[in-house]
Design a protein around this nucleic acid. Structure first.
Length: 946
RNA sequence: AGUCAUGUAGCUCAGUAGGUAGAGCACUCGACCGAUAAUCGAGAUGUCGUAGGUUCGAUCCCUACCGUGACUACCA
């Protein structure tokens, strides 16, 4: 008897599953793209479009990816893809940083594990092992990046160890050699005794360290002021081993000092009653306490400037350190601690070096590369400051005991303070005078050029500009030499007799040629004559054996990637890295490029923050708060991780953890179901169904207006790299405007109207548009899901991948501000009706809103807005009456909408068995339990719903 | 140690020429049972980091402090 009308209703139909199964689906899509050769097709199809070159900052090729890599590469990918869809030719070439200490260190460890000393391994063999190690990790990381959905030229990435790259890096060094920017300088650098190399700033970490803290007496032999005669200046240091290198004392010219006569000392004190010492007034108390002085008398007060020009003798002058020790003014002298006098050893400190240089002090070579005093150093020759393992050597103790013997040691204790350490071996470092190669910040106005370049670069967020500028303003010359094995050789020759750097382009050309053919190895494998040619006698030249700082490698990527590849462009449109790269890649690239090409290698720089755990603190394995990208992808899918990237504000630190990932999964489901609804309701859609915009109901035209606005927002936020705003807007559009409003209203027409209904056809026309726009807008973010949806509906003529599309144009005629305004009022009315129905529901008078037929009292404005609209349709009721009149007091109102009121009522009639509306005309036609519309729909149905 | 950021509902984020705050999600309750491990609706939720100050009034301005992060320095 009862007909099952379900078969006559046009219910959504699609193979696009509600449950995504991303961990399984994503690899299938990756395989599909591989078959399609998607990246090549993108390049081919976008040939001639304006280029967008996001130049990849190379990750270091060791170890699996961590979440920071994932953030970085996903953000790059979203930008690269969205620029592509904005109509650019967005060609992304990933790269890797291959040389340098971390890899070298790993290989050394392997040798150590085998009981071998790496110094015994032939350098070419060693370098080859490093190369293979890097190659192995490049393959692994490449896989892991691709699994995240990152699209790019993975078939032909760049690496800093490619022969071509090594050759170009050599050419870049040669440019600095030829233009005079490169020079050999003797200066103290932070030196690792363990790794036997100078370290770059970026390779230094500061850790707490216990050092001896000593007070040392420097007797005045020639006071600049009579008040100094016969007294001794007291210095304080935490590095006793630098005392042999002492050449001066610094005093704060503006500080107050006092000459005291010691009256009372405790039993442990090394000071004699009657000693006369000069110290800073402000530090008198603390210094006296440290030296065990319990009573003293002021002899004289002095200003620092009165002391400048005095001369002391070295505390070990009787033991072979017989040079004078002049007192200079130093603006770095503070009264935080110590004595207000700083002992100056020009070989062992930055301040010391500069002060010494200003006063023509000698910069003696005191300590060799393994941290032992040179043979020429009296008393201490051969003693170690630090052992080869980084432990404290005998030097400090020896110096202190000799000082003590000379009655120069006035106090000693242990002090824990922050001290530089190697990032790699974690061993303490020392300042050591060495011969190193530098790029001058002054020659060729490098600093000025760099500063100008910064002001001409777009920074996102803008604070980055200030940050980079202040770094460039104050940084010293760039020390580019490393006494290591795994890197690009600094390919230069020095004339043995004159010390002159050989500047001959022909020589450099031969070197680059060799590197291009055989890599940097050829520098070590070939006789110097191969490069010097016939014009020079190899015997007369020293071949430099240093390698170049890896920051110079990566700082040159713009040369061997952007300039070298025909399908790229110099300068890059964008560099994008974590904010730590202000002192890293952004910095080195800028200097390298300004020094050789006079401008930055990038038009814009974007920085992102770091990934923190959910509690806002650093991720920590031991606390279990670290998130592995591999595990996340395997359990949830890369698209979830990609949502996380765009839903976070990358200009600050980002948080990530289980709860946040769950949140992203929820957001994902909403988007996925929106796509599924579109697909299900577009089943069988054909072009012939389309309804022209002018014939569409207002509701459809309102959706088109919203599409127009979303399009503008998507494009704007893409240009501004504001993906968080974009994602939020997209999600709200799907959740609030489509799902909760438009779809909800139109389900009735889509399911129940007859196939030829203009209303239904118009809705399907709009759903088709929504599908087109949404898949495009989502494609840069949800690269997998957007593709899955696209392919679910692709017919023969459609393009093979959503990623071969661009954001579709939106006709300007879709914009209709007046309509949008009108519909603001309509939606407001709907809110009130919904509120009224909720009461009815709570009172159990209705369940479904289709049981209701409310009377709505409106003001003139709202009445005008509702002209021509069907109240019941919009409110999803079965009926309703609009009355422009004052409502009865009993009517339902919302507190914030005074002009509207609703008097609920039950709809009259029977429930239609097909559309479930309660209507008076149910049973009026051939079908006893069906309304007139549905009867017509059933009769007119042409087997569409099977 | 210093500098600079940052601290708004459980989560991601908005916001306020200074008048005690919002959106989505999550949560709870309800409806539907033809987007169904969906969909719709309603609701509660916050001393706007802490303590002072300026002000009639501060989440928004000032100061200090605390937490977190990044950077810089290393200082003898």
């Amino acid at each position: 008897m009862a007909i099952d009308y379900k078969d006559t209703v046009f219910l959504p139909k699609t193979d696009f599953p509600m449950r995504a199964g991303l961990p399984k689906k994503e690899p299938e899509l990756l395989a599909y793209w591989a078959d399609l050769e998607l990246f090549s097709r993108q390049r081919a199809e976008s040939a001639g479009r304006p280029p967008f070159v996001l130049h990849d900052g190379p990750p270091y090729a060791n170890g699996h990816l961590h979440i920071g890599h994932a953030l970085n590469k996903i953000l790059k990918d979203v930008i690269s893809r969205s620029q592509q869809m904005m109509g650019k030719d967005s060609n992304y070439v990933p790269g890797w940083d291959c040389h340098g200490l971390p890899i070298e260190w790993k290989i050394e460890e392997q040798y150590r594990a085998d009981g071998q000393n790496k110094d015994d391994v032939p350098i070419l063999e060693f370098r080859n092992e490093c190369r293979e190690f890097a190659a192995k990790w490049i393959d692994i990381q490449s896989e892991e990046f691709q699994r995240l959905g990152v699209i790019g030229n993975w078939h032909d990435p760049y690496t800093t160890m490619a022969y071509g790259a090594e050759a170009q890096i050599a050419r870049e060094i040669a440019k600095f050699a030829m233009n005079g920017g490169l020079y050999r300088g003797a200066r103290p650098v932070l030196w690792s005794v363990v790794e036997k190399t100078a370290l770059a700033d970026a390779e230094v970490e500061y850790e707490d360290h216990v050092s001896p803290s000593i007070y040392v007496r420097f007797p005045v032999v020639s006071g600049a002021d009579r008040a100094l005669d016969g007294a001794a200046i007291v210095i304080w240091t935490t590095t006793p081993w630098t005392i042999p290198g002492n050449r001066a004392i610094a005093v704060g010219a503006e500080l107050d000092y006092v000459r005291i006569r010691v009256e009372v000392v405790n039993e442990k004190s090394r000071v004699q009653v009657g000693d006369e010492l000069v110290i800073a007034k402000a530090l008198r108390e603390s210094a006296c306490q440290e030296m065990g002085i319990e009573g003293s008398e002021d002899v004289a007060l002095l200003r620092g400037e009165d002391i400048v020009g005095s001369v002391c003798v070295h505390p070990l002058h009787a033991k072979g350190f017989d040079h004078e020790v002049p007192v200079f003014a130093g603006d770095f002298v503070t009264i935080d601690q110590g004595t207000g006098f700083v002992h100056i050893a020009p070989s062992h400190g930055e301040d010391d070096f500069h002060l010494g240089r200003a006063h023509d002090l000698s910069v003696p070579d005191m300590v060799n590369e393994v941290g032992c005093y040179f043979e020429h150093v009296p008393l201490f020759a051969g003693m170690a400051v630090l052992t080869p393992d980084g432990d404290e050597g005998e030097a400090n103790g020896a110096v202190m005991s000799v000082l003590e013997g000379e009655n120069a040691l006035l106090g000693r204790r242990r002090l824990e303070h922050s001290y530089p350490h190697s990032w790699r071996s974690k061993a303490p470092l020392i300042f050591r005078n060495t011969s190193q190669w530098f790029i001058s910040m002054k020659t060729n106005d490098l600093r000025d050029k760099a500063l100008t370049a910064i002001s001409e670069t777009r920074f996102v967020p803008s604070q980055g500009q200030t940050r980079l500028r202040s770094m460039i303003e104050t940084r010293p010359d760039w020390c580019i030499s490393r006494q290591r094995a795994w890197g690009v050789p600094i390919p230069i020759f020095v004339h043995k007799q004159t010390g002159e750097l050989l500047r001959d382009q022909a020589v450099f050309d031969r070197i680059a040629e060799a590197f291009a053919a055989e890599g940097g190895d050829s520098w070590f494998a070939s006789p110097p004559s191969r490069f010097l040619g016939n014009d020079y006698d190899a015997e007369e030249y020293e071949q430099v054996r240093d390698i170049v700082d890896v920051w110079f490698d990566s700082g040159s990527t713009h040369a061997f990637v952007l300039e070298d590849r025909d399908d790229l462009q110099w300068p890059a449109s964008l560099y994008l890295e974590g904010s730590d790269q202000h002192r890293g890649w952004f910095h080195s690239s800028l200097l390298e490029s300004c020094g050789t090409r006079g401008r930055a290698p990038y038009d814009a720089v974007l920085t992102h923050g770091f990934v923190m755990a959910e509690d806002g603190r650093k991720m920590s394995k031991s606390r279990g708060t670290d998130v592995s990208p591999q595990e996340t992808v395997e359990s949830l899918g890369a698209d979830i991780l990609r949502i996380w990237v765009v839903s976070s504000d990358y200009s600050e630190d980002l948080r990530l953890g289980p709860e946040i990932l769950k949140h992203q999964s929820d957001l994902y489901r909403r988007i996925r179901n929106t796509l599924r609804f579109l697909l299900g309701n577009l089943d069988g859609f054909e072009d012939s169904e389309r309804v022209p915009v002018v014939e569409m109901p207002e509701l459809e035209r309102w959706v088109l207006h919203r599409i127009h606005a979303m399009d503008a927002l998507v494009r704007q936020t893409t240009d501004d790299f504001e993906f968080h705003t974009q994602w939020t807007a997209l999600h709200n559009f799907c959740a609030v405007e489509l799902s909760a409003f438009y779809f909800d209203i139109r389900k009735d027409a889509l399911y129940c109207d007859s196939v030829d209904s203009v209303r239904r056809r118009a809705a399907r026309t709009v759903l088709d548009a929504l599908f087109s726009y949404l898949t495009a807008w989502l494609a840069p973010i949800l690269c997998f899901t957007a593709e899955e949806a696209w392919l679910a509906r692709r017919s023969g003529s459609d393009v093979d991948s959503v990623h071969l599309r661009t954001f579709p144009d939106v006709p300007n005629t879709w914009r209709d501000d007046a309509l949008a305004n009108k519909w603001e009022k309509v939606r407001n009315l709907r809110r009130v009706v919904t509120g009224a129905l909720e009461i009815e529901r709570a009172e159990k008078r209705i369940g479904s809103s289709l049981q209701a037929a409310p009377t709505v009292y409106v003001d003139g404005e709202t009445a005008a807005a509702m002209t021509g609209l069907d109240l019941a349709e919009i409110c999803i009721t079965s009926g309703g009456t609009l009355v422009e009149a004052a409502p009865p007091d009993s009517a339902f109102r919302l507190s914030d909408v005074e002009a509207l009121a609703v008097e609920p009522a039950l709809a009259e009639g029977e429930k239609c068995a097909r559309c479930w509306q309660v209507l008076p005309d149910v049973g009026a036609s051939d079908y006893p339990d069906v309304c007139g519309r549905c009867a017509a729909a059933i009769n007119g149905r042409q087997g569409s719903a099977d």
